[in-house]
């Protein structure tokens, strides 16, 4: 077997805070093959975004990164800023929750796409403009030639996200990281954007990491899922297997807590009591222990490793799996 496109090995991210050192990501291992989609799910503060920033080498200045981020055979952590800049676009691209993070409000859409194509692909102005219009059409933007002349503020949120996706895809990246790309959008627009991402991904045989808090989104749109809790991956499995049999109690509880379309109104929801632990005060044992209905004494003593004891292709971090 050839080496995977991306392999994250023992990645930790620590941030200094007034309350002490905060371990946002705690020894995460992940791999991703070309053309596949990995969903990363978890609630706010569980480390999803810091993990994606670690892959992109876009961590806050004072953050400390440990471990290796192997991408196409190179350790990204060891690359110079210049080498990374050349990588972003043609190799690695990102779409954020708020498209304005990557769009410049004072430049037209056209200028932003054309610049990207000129810088990374060395296209001429005319060719880049033509390609820009094609890209906008491909992401479902009507009247693309006119849109090129508009500013981001003149577009709706959904249209802006389409533009951000068009720019991210413009240099045919091998890996796209989409960090909550539809969280700010309405459901009908969300469905269209997720369709768009899936279509473009298949067409380009691109790998994608789809980061979301929504188990509904990962269910329909990913090949594999990693569930994060308190900085760690606590369960990881191919998507159908994960939903068919959740091993880690947190994953199970998270799914149960979502209001279901097929249950009757006023059905009480099996809520998860309490809340995630303070990330500056890590627990010695399982981080989910204070909220887990299956907790036993040994859970509080030692952290369960992420492992696949049955060798069934499904990893989980729990001493007493379901």
């Amino acid at each position: 077997m050839s080496a995977p496109l991306l392999s994250i090995e023992g990645v930790s991210v620590e941030l200094p805070t007034p309350r002490g050192l905060l371990r946002a990501v705690d020894r995460v291992d992940l791999t991703l093959e070309a053309g596949r989609t990995l969903g990363v799910v978890g609630e706010s503060g569980c480390g999803k975004t810091m993990l994606s920033r670690a892959i992109l080498q876009l961590l806050p200045k004072r953050a400390k990164l440990d471990g290796r981020v192997m991408f196409g055979g190179r350790d990204l952590a060891g690359l110079s800023r210049e080498a990374l800049r050349r990588l972003r676009g043609p190799e690695l691209a990102v779409v954020f929750q708020d498209p304005m993070t990557s769009l410049n409000p004072v430049l037209t859409i056209g200028t932003q796409i054309v610049e990207t194509l000129q810088v990374h692909l060395g296209m001429s102005g005319i060719a880049a403009t033509k390609r820009g219009a094609e890209l906008l059409a491909a992401v479902g933007i009507p009247a693309p030639e006119q849109r090129l002349r508009q500013y981001p503020s003149q577009l709706s949120g959904g249209m802006r996200q389409r533009v951000a996706i068009a720019i991210a895809l413009s240099c045919e990246p091998k890996l796209l990281i989409a960090d909550e790309p539809t969280t700010a959008l309405d459901v009908t627009v969300q469905a269209q954007i997720l369709d768009l991402l899936a279509r473009e991904q298949q067409r380009r045989h691109m790998a994608m990491i789809l980061i979301t808090h929504d188990l509904g989104v990962v269910a329909g749109r990913t090949d594999e899922v990693a569930v994060m809790y308190a900085g760690r991956v606590v369960e990881r499995a191919p998507t159908p297997r994960l939903f068919a049999h959740m091993r880690m109690p947190y994953t199970e509880a998270l799914l149960a807590a979502i209001p279901r379309l097929d249950s009757a109104p006023h059905t009480p929801l099996p809520a998860i009591g309490g809340r995630p632990p303070d990330p500056t005060r890590p627990l010695p044992g399982c981080s989910f222990a204070p909220r887990c209905r299956y907790v036993e004494d040994d859970c509080r003593a030692a952290k369960p490793p992420l492992a696949d004891p049955e060798r069934a292709g499904s990893l989980y971090a729990c001493w007493h799996p379901r």
Partner: peptide, 25 residues
């Protein structure tokens, strides 16, 4: 009907509906 079809269902055996009414409000 469009709103109902657009809801992502946490079940991988349910394929997300495609060809939903296009465009935005």
């Amino acid at each position: 009907a469009l709103l109902l079809d657009a809801i992502p269902v946490p079940d991988p055996t349910v394929r997300p509906a495609t060809n939903l009414a296009v465009g935005e409000p």
